[in-house]
Design a protein around this nucleic acid. Sequence first.
DNA 1: ACAAAACAGGACGTCAATGTCCATTTTAAC
DNA 2: GTTAAAATGGACATTGACGTCCTGTTTTGT
Lengths: 153, 153
Amino acid sequence: MFSQTVEYALRAVVFLADHAPTACTTDQISTATQVPKPYLSKVLQNLGRNNIVRSQRGIGGGVTLVKMPNELTILEVVNAVEPIERIHTCPLGLKSHGTKLCPLHQRMDEALEMVEKSFNQTTVAEMLAEPGGSHPLCENPKATAEKQVKKRQ
Amino acid sequence: MFSQTVEYALRAVVFLADHAPTACTTDQISTATQVPKPYLSKVLQNLGRNNIVRSQRGIGGGVTLVKMPNELTILEVVNAVEPIERIHTCPLGLKSHGTKLCPLHQRMDEALEMVEKSFNQTTVAEMLAEPGGSHPLCENPKATAEKQVKKRQ
DNA sequence: ACAAAACAGGACGTCAATGTCCATTTTAAC
DNA sequence: GTTAAAATGGACATTGACGTCCTGTTTTGT
């Protein structure tokens, strides 16, 4: 239902949010999210072109979120890598249906709408709030404490 | 979001329901649903193996639904060709997460659950009831009237 | 028995998603 | 300036989804 790429993009963004505003390298993200580094690199480039993340080359560089985690929705991330395609016109091209979908496609589009709305209502920040659940991408629920800030000098 | 195969399977099933309990040939279904015949054939075989449709070889043969349209849900059809995979355990294999998903995967699974429930609540028969919308797969909304019953002799 | 209609199934082709690899460019530190 | 860290981009490999084709098998009507 959801592609690998969507899953990977969300993992990366959650990781970045968890470390914001510190920049993270592809290596760090790859290790933590268990996404193959070369592929992750492509996904991040894609997120960069769609203005979800910003990247900085060279020593001390890395990737950061463009928006604040509490202003970035999962829908924005999903739409950046694989847009949710709502059904607007009859896929069979039946002219008489026009803008009015038949019940089949109405139902399918309703499902898409539900997902779209749900994803639009969830910010990346909400996923770090651990409402009873475990912390994203971390083995130890309390691992947030020792956030490893990278020294620059 | 939904694969072509799912779309094709649903079109075929809706067409069969619209003509139930008369058997339809792959040719008829292919023409009406605009699904390439050889591929439709594979999809129907798949639906057959999953006991959604039954097929009859030879002259006068064709494909029919196993269940009554009002007892067949879209979920059953979807699950036959491409099962909705709910997220039950942490995709990263983090042991400490166990059965408790992190917020990210909770949200993704919630979306899957919504779609699953929605599809489970919709029967194929409901899609022929044309609640204000147009009739499935038919150019003319009133084309149902002249249902072309195939003569056997 | 024979012919025609119809499904079954295997082999093959194509393409996009996924994944890998390497050379290049940018940047900071020394 | 040199070096090392890091992203960029292009080329390539692999795999599964989608689609086609052909041969065989079943069934009915004559």
